[in-house]
């Protein structure tokens, strides 16, 4: 799911539309506030208290706006699910599966491909770092061992809840190398605030080396 690129695009369009509507409504309001002061006007600008033709016409316009926005929203959803460009091919391909177990108050990442498990206590310097390969789909299989948590990587606009007795799959591709912070975004109690983890994306070759080394260490 190419969350970030889809998010950036549709968020920009939606913000532009919202900005336009806000400016329009506020301009009409301010215009009326300046022009229609009772001290300035002797008579009402217009006395009609209804106009069904205008209002029906306006409802049609609203309907068209809704149709446009719903279409945009649906297209974005389908792009989220099917991927796009490089990611589209990658989404279909085999993935790196990582079983993520959220618990109060940290995370455990278990690789399906190798006997490697990463965890920590999420206290000051002990946040788990999950290493993932770039350009290849990574599937985070999210579950929880106690309450509801939510797996969020803000920089990639990716978020999915983790439940006990349930697995939610979050499939995504990291197109570049780097390290990003992830956190829990569903309130889960006292140390919810410190439930941080890091995602480190490395080249597939480096990733294989990492897994091999970590398996030996384990």
């Amino acid at each position: 799911m190419p969350f970030r690129s889809v998010f950036d695009q549709i968020f920009t369009i939606w913000t532009a539309i919202a900005g336009g509507v806000f400016v329009l409504v506020t301009a009409v309001l301010l215009f009326a506030v300046v022009r229609n002061r009772a001290t300035k006007r002797e008579h009402l600008p217009f006395a009609a208290s209804e106009n069904h033709k205008v209002e029906f016409g306006y409802v049609v316009v609203l309907g068209l706006i809704v149709a446009g926005l719903v279409t945009g929203s649906f297209l974005a959803i389908s792009r989220l699910h099917s991927g796009e460009g490089l990611a589209e091919e990658a989404m279909a391909g085999p993935s790196t599966r990582i079983d993520v177990t959220a618990f109060r108050w940290c995370w455990e990442f278990a690789y399906a491909e190798a006997p490697v498990t990463v965890t920590g206590t999420c206290t000051s310097d002990d946040s788990p770092v999950v290493v993932v390969p770039t350009d290849r789909p990574v599937e985070f299989a999210l579950t929880s061992s106690d309450v509801v948590h939510s797996f969020w990587i803000p920089d990639w606009a990716a978020k999915m809840d983790a439940y006990p007795d349930d697995v939610n799959e979050l499939r995504m591709v990291f197109p570049e190398e780097g390290m990003w912070r992830g956190l829990c975004s569903e309130f889960c109690g006292t140390h919810h605030v410190t439930m941080d983890f890091y995602v480190r994306a490395v080249s597939p070759a480096e990733y294989e080396q990492y897994l091999a080394a970590a398996s030996v260490a384990a």
Binding site: F3, V6, F7, I10, F11, W14, L69, G72, S73, A76, I77, R79, L80, S150, W152, P154, A157, A158, K159, M160, S185, E186
Partner: peptide, 12 residues
């Protein structure tokens, strides 16, 4: 109301 946006902004 737009899921592609909501995934990022919810609970933030």
């Amino acid at each position: 109301a737009t899921p592609a946006i909501d995934y990022q902004i919810t609970d933030s």
